[in-house]
Every structure is written in structure tokens, then in C-alpha cells.
Design a protein around this nucleic acid. Sequence first.
DNA 1: ATTCTTCTCCATCATTTGATGGAAACGAGC
DNA 2: GCTCGTTTCCATCAAATGATGGAGAAGAAT
Lengths: 217, 217
Amino acid sequence: MATPLEKARMAPDSMKARILKAARRLFGQYGFHGTTTRMIAKDVEIDISTLYYHWGEKGDLYEAVIRDIYEDLKLKLSEVEKVIHGRPLSERMEISIDMMTDYLFDNPEISNLILFRYFTKTRHPTGHDIHVPELISDVARSMNLSEDKSRISTSARMQVLAIMNTIHNFISGEGFFRPMLGLEKKEYVVRVRETLKFILVPAFAGKAALRARSPAG
Amino acid sequence: MATPLEKARMAPDSMKARILKAARRLFGQYGFHGTTTRMIAKDVEIDISTLYYHWGEKGDLYEAVIRDIYEDLKLKLSEVEKVIHGRPLSERMEISIDMMTDYLFDNPEISNLILFRYFTKTRHPTGHDIHVPELISDVARSMNLSEDKSRISTSARMQVLAIMNTIHNFISGEGFFRPMLGLEKKEYVVRVRETLKFILVPAFAGKAALRARSPAG
DNA sequence: ATTCTTCTCCATCATTTGATGGAAACGAGC
DNA sequence: GCTCGTTTCCATCAAATGATGGAGAAGAAT
């Protein structure tokens, strides 16, 4: 028994999937209220009522988009995890940063939509995500931030949030930051990776990791 | 010759100022498209046309809000700069983090609006900020990230962006993160400060600062 | 050929939303 | 008390927006 979302993910050329894809991009750029169902329909070159036929009300489509990006993100993270498994921490971090920035620069709407969710109230009530806490804990485990694998500490979870958001910021902010810095796309990507490593790695590399558990040191 | 915004900042009980204040809060919560002029008017308990009388069209009010928050932010930053002047870098960073988180938790719409600007397209065209590059350079100078005070390097500016965004993230994301982490407000604030210091300080403390200029080390 | 299902579009609604004109209230100066 | 500039509200518009009903196309099953 496949959910509507699962169907759309399976047949990528279906109308359902095409609508979802356009919605993903547009919701990512303009946010929930900034995107109209007509904008999405126009992008897919269909009538607005075809959109409603497939996805029902706007809020439902939006929720489907959110689930969709988290599915993709989970897949990518487990792919990353396989690659970094067993390596020393600083190496794990650098590889993760490279792989994730590559992926997110190719799919910037993922970063956009995640940050949107964190920061915006949506006049329409939205179901709270189960995805995020799960994802965060997975990353924390994969980074070895917690000795107890089943109970991830608050500090560890907040550190993961900080790391992931720092990455998302540079992806989502490209349209603003890149012109401001006067960089070409390629140069920007390189600089982002550099900056992320410069900021994020030292905190966890070497002895720093030990200090994590003795706050206010 | 005072601009409308300056007037509103000077007489904080004036209708103009009351509208601006409400607009600031609501635009911060719901974004540009998520906030209606009627919501703002209702919040101030005035008729919608009174709002238009004072501020003209919605976009103009929004721009005024943006200028307003950057004015406040600049004032705060120069206040911080006075306090940290002359101290060693890691101390400067810790004090800055404490002061800025205090301030931004009291005025979360500042973080919200800044992040909004970075990440969202606004169907209506908006003039690009002059405030941001200036602010970034000021902070970079105050952190001593650049030897040449008049020409701040791209690396330095990106590092400052990363730092400031990481702070904004935790402020703006409180509504999402705090319930997720199961923390009380006070506890959350403490944890945020801890996490920020844990992540941000090591990169710049000690010899790390030197490595900044030899990338891909 | 017919039926049935699935899909798509046209026409249309009710609401919401940005915006304005004009009348009333208010207050300062005379 | 009257005048004049300023401020506020009521009534109203036009456009945008979320959403739906129903008619028709397209294709498969019988």
C-alpha cells in the first residue's frame, strides 16, 4: 500500500511527480505563503485544477514536499555514513562536508525548505516533524558525539544542529552572499567548503572533543 | 531633514513608531508574504487605511523595518566592540557571544528578518542591502581577522557570515528547536551559549587563526 | 461499440488581500 | 467659535488566490 508520496517518488515522470518537483523548487524559493498554486501549475504547464486533482489542498502538497526532501536527505546521509565509516573524526567531518555541500548545492531547495521550517510560522497549522529529531540523532551517532548510542545528549544534538545549519546557511544564502562577495559560482563553492572546515573541524578535532562534556571550561 | 524612519525611531509612542514595531514583529514571524497589512493594523488596533496613511505600500513598510533592525544591530555591535576592545581573541568572542545572544533573544525578530532576507525570494523586487557588507566588515575588523583594515579578505568575510548566522539560527529556530530538545527557555539560552562557544571559539583561538590563510592544509 | 476509469481543462466561487477616496474627528492657532 | 492642517475610520475596489463542479478527452476492458 503506497502513499501518494511514495507513488510520486517511484514514477518520476508521472504528473504527480512533476507537480511535486515543481512545488519543491518553488516552495523552496518563495516559501509557503510566497508560492501560489497557480505558480506551480504554470511551471508544470497544467491547469490549476489538475494540481488540485492530484494533491488536494495546498497545505497537503507542502507537507508532501517536506516529507520528500527528508526522504532524500536521509538517503544521502546514510550514503555518507557508509563512506566515512571507521575513519578518524576530522577526516569524517571533511568528507561529510564535501559530500553534503556537493549534494545540497545540487538540490538547494532542500536547504531552503529546512531552514524555512525552522524559522517561519505558517499561518496554517502544520504537523510537527518527526524527521528532524531522528536525523539529528543519526548524525550525532555517526559523529560519535555520544558514548550512549541510544540516548543522544542535548549538547550533542545542539552541536549537530549547529553544524547542519551552518551548511544550509551557505547553500540557501548563495543568492544573497555570492553577489555580495563578488564570487563566481565555482569559487563560491570552494570557499564555502573551506570556511565550513575552518570553522567546524577544530571544535571536534583532537582534545576539543573531550572538553565537550565539561561545559563552561 | 529626517526620513520617515528616523522620525519613527525618535518618537517611539507615535503612531508611525507603533506600526513599525508591530510590523517588525509580524514580518519577523511570518515573513513578507505571510504577513498581511490587515494583521499589522489589527495588532496596533487601528484601521488598515491608517497604516497606509503613515507608511504607504506594504513593500515600503517592509523596507523600513529592514533598515530599522540594521540600525539597531549596528548600535548593538558598536556597543559590544567597546566592551571587548583590547582583550584577547577568545575572550572577545565569548563576550560577544554572550552579549549578542542576550540581545537577540530579547529581539528575535532581528534574527528572523535577517535570515529571511538571506534565504527568501520576495516576488516583489527589493533593493539590495548596503547594510550587510558594511556590518560584516566591521565585525571582521573587530575580530582582527584581517591585517589590512581597509580591505577585508573574502575568507574573513565568510567566516564572519558563518559566525553570525550560527547565532541567528539558534535564536530564530527556538520555536522549533526548543520543543524538540525538551528544554525550558532559560535552559535553552544557556545551552545555546555553550554550543556557540564550543563550535565557534576553537577555530579562531590560538594557532588556528594563522592557518586561516593557508587553505586546504 | 460501449462502458468505465482516469485524467485534464474551462468556468466559476468565495475570500483574502493590497490599496484608495472621502467623510468625520481632533487639535492648534487665531 | 471658526479655520485649517493632521489624523483616523468607513466603505469600497480590483486583483489575486485557494478551491470546486462538471464537461469532455483518452484509453483500457468488456
